[in-house]
Structure formats: C-alpha cells, structure tokens
Design a protein around this nucleic acid. Sequence first.
DNA 1: CGATGTCAAGGAATC
DNA 2: GATTCCTTGACATCG
Length: 346
Amino acid sequence: MTPFPAPPMRLGFAAKVLGRPDLKSNDARKHPSNPHLRVSIGYLHAIFDYLHEHAVPMYRMSSDIAPYVTHPDLPRFHNQVRECRAELEALGKVARDRGLRLSFHPSQYVLLNSPDKKVTAQSVRDLVAQAEMLDVMGAGAEAVLVTHVGGTYGDPAAGRVRWAETYKTLPEPARRRLVLENDDLRFSAADVLAVHDRTGAPLVFDHQHYWCLNPERLDLRETVTKFLATWPAGVRPKVHYSSPRTELREVKRKDKATGKTKTALLPPVWTGHADFVNPFEFVQFLRAVDGLVFDVMLEAKAKDLALLRVRQDLPRYAPDQAGRFGLEPAPDGEPDPAGAEEPDAG
DNA sequence: CGATGTCAAGGAATC
DNA sequence: GATTCCTTGACATCG
C-alpha cells in the first residue's frame, strides 16, 4: 500500500484539438513548402494553452511535428531538432511547469520487427528523433514512446523475438522511453507480456484491443495488474481506453466498368473507434480495476470533446470512480442538463 | 470557394 | 505480381 493517497489519475487525448478548429497539431505542409519543427512548436504552445485552460493534464503530440526529419531522400530536414534546441527547451518548460504528461505514438510505419533491415533501421531513426525531442524538452520518464510489436510475417513467435532483438540494440535514449502496447489484430496482451519477459520493456494496456484480440482468454483485472507491474517504480503507468464504433461504415470504391465512385454501407468492424467514450462501459472497466493506479489516454475520435464529456459524465454516474481522477461529485439535479455541456464553440 | 485528390513510409488479404 | 484496405488529416489542386 502507498503511504499517502496517490495523486489523481490523469485523462488525456491525442493530437488534434476538436474544440478549437483553428489549432493545428503539426506543420503538415508538403516538403516543397519547407515545413519545420519550429512551426509545429508554435502550434504546440497554443495547444498547451488550450490544455491549461481546460485542465487537461495529459496529451499525445502528433508524431509528425518534425516533418521529414528522417526522410532518407531529404537530408535538408534532418537537423530540425538541433535547430530548435532553445524552442524545445522553452516548450518543455511550459509542460513541466503545468505538470503536463506528454507522449508520442509513432506511426504505423515504425516496425521494429520487420524482416527487412532497411525498414527496421528507418524505424529506429524515427524513434531516436522522437526520444531526442522529449530529452531536449526535459520531459520526465513518464513521457514515453508507445509502439506495437508490428507484423507477423507468417510467424508471430519469430516476430516477437525479432522485436526483442531490435529492442536490445536501440540507442539508450530511445530504449529508455519505449513502451509496448497490445494490438487488436496480431499481438495480444499475452503476446506483449511474453515480449516484456524477454526485454523488460514496460507495457501499455489497450482496453479495446484486449476485447478485440484475447485468444488466451486472459482475465481483465489480472492482466491489467501484470501490465502495470512492468513499469519502473515511481513512473505512473498508462492505459489506453476507447469504445468501439457501432455505426455502419460508408465505404467509397471505384466501379471498374464505369470508373465512377460508388458508396456502399458495410457492417462495423469492432476495431474502429467511436466518437465518444461509452460512460457505462468505462465505469465498468474502472470498477473492475479498482485500487489500481494509472493514467488513461482516451483514443476517441472526438478527442478533447470526448475527454470533456466523460469528465462530466463520471461525477454524475459514478462518483466513486470520479474521485480517482480528482473530480468533484456532481451537484444535485438532472443527470444530464440540456445545454450545460457544450464546449466553447469558438 | 467547395470538392476532390494526394501524401514518405508497411502489412496483409485477395485475386 | 498487382490491387485494395487499413485510417488520417490536412495540404494542394482542380473545376
């Protein structure tokens, strides 16, 4: 038992700020326009101010804030982190002063277990660049790089081993920040636990992925407990939470004969993310892991709007769980008063 | 100005 | 071996 009550668990969201359409998450211009990390840092100052205004304590930065920084054919972009040293230090100080927990989630192209050495080497370069940015910002150990195991290449066991081999060869700054997440199609919670046993890499538990892929039928609470125990002492673990999308999908496809674009309605895939967090299921999860301490990265499509919404729902529907996040119990009255919950339209 | 096409990048299923 | 989906936003271009 901890001698003192643990500080409140944190809720965070990723990348794009939907509550303020004018806030950009990264300089996304194409290379002929010479986009730059310096521009992205300016955008991040505005985002951090928004987070501060809304008391959002955790945020995942876009993995593309340094555009083309490792692009093999565009060396003129490779010095951005060094060019922005002072700017990164200043941005990091803002985050530190406000207790803002930061992270990156490298893109789908970062594959540490690819059999193709070039792909793996390129992935390592990306991780090193992102780790370096966090280091220059002076971010604490809780600022991590979250990644998946990668592809199966027809042999999942070999894929796990290759990930572990690459992990051991990572430059220390990247290895120190890297954490591994269970995915929804290829590597289950049991799989990443096995990789942890080989490597010691901390694990992020993704709740939706656990429900999508759990052939070993691992128990929820036992598994979360094991995942949390993979983190070093003194570093708050983190889990990912999202609700599955249930709507029909509108899929556009080109008709071969006519060349015209047609739309079709297909059943939902449960790996898709819903706009918002289902409050009842979220509370059910929190109660299932009562007593465990972790931060929660929300991966809802409505981003910050989903965070603000669930933060409003929790005190109303589950005061016992809201307390874990430092949220005050809801005042008496209607569970969901009309018109009281819209965020600033801007 | 609104609609549409494109983007650095991989993997896997399908044919 | 080639095509398409996965999934994502925003830039860039077109009409």
